[in-house]
Design a binder for these strands. Structure first.
Lengths: 146, 146
DNA sequence: TATTGTTATACTCTATAACTATA
DNA sequence: TATAGTTATAGAGTATAACAATA
């Protein structure tokens, strides 16, 4: 905690946070997923498959149960966006990889998700720069789960 | 579009947005909902019930079907957080209101949601101020759906 | 007839437990 | 016996259509 940072109602941090929540929620990636006709879980799985992953790794990354991942990957396979193949070293393990089609879609998705919304793009350049610098500082000093 | 704002990969807006998404997603209100043992839809309904609402109004605010709201309000009533009563002017309409218990919970919820995360609170005071000023500008110039 | 809300139904998401095939 | 993944099953979220009560 910082000197002069009282955190009473109406302090700077609370004001800034209140403004920010109005700008970033609901998350734009939800409407992007809809545009691509992907359900949120499929969308998340696709993003997690930037590298090949085992079923269990996917479950961890998607914070869901292993049994779930079966259905999610089934649906990716149905759309020929990914394939699963048994690992050669341990045949219990299935490795899931994006297909060429899946890679292409992921590339387009990532481009969409990275696009700053209008409220950022329309800021004066010096504000964009200040914002970036402040956020860099915040990311650098971030502790897990804050 | 602004002069000097090329929006090529790596420009200021994209950099700032990339940093921001890392800081604000996943949304902290999800874990707050879990702490209060509320499912996301119940949580959202509670927040929408700051004022009494009809079932149809709730459906609009929660972006879901009318038939859904029946179940959500049922569960609020089961927890004695809200009551529904027929309107006196048109008895087709049901007005949903928070109970005393519901009001108390909503007040606590709102306090939690308004709390800035550590990455904001731990910024130097001048950065908090700059952040607030920039975000105020963004909110002021915001057009619907941006 | 039109509207508000409910019920019936179905599909998806998620989790638990039992199962399989490997190890 | 332990582990990776699947299947069976069940609960909750959401949508559509048919329905009841009211206007």
């Amino acid at each position: 905690m910082k000197t002069g940072n009282i955190n009473a109602k109406g302090d700077l941090a609370t004001e800034a946070w209140g403004l920010l929540t109005g700008l970033v929620y609901p998350p734009p990636f939800l409407s992007i997923a809809r545009e691509f006709d992907l359900r949120p879980s499929t969308f998340a799985a696709l993003r997690a498959l930037e590298q090949p992953r085992t079923m269990g790794e996917l479950a961890g990354l998607l914070h869901c149960d292993n049994s779930n991942v079966t259905g999610i990957v089934d649906s990716l396979e149905d759309k020929t966006l990914a394939v699963r193949k048994p690992s050669e070293v341990d045949r219990r393990i299935k490795v899931v990889e994006l297909s060429g089609q899946g890679e292409t879609l992921l590339t387009r998705l990532k481009r969409e998700v990275a696009k700053p919304p209008a409220w950022v793009k329309d800021l004066p350049e010096e504000d964009q720069e200040a914002l970036r610098d402040i956020l860099e500082k915040a990311v650098a000093s971030r502790t897990p789960g804050s």
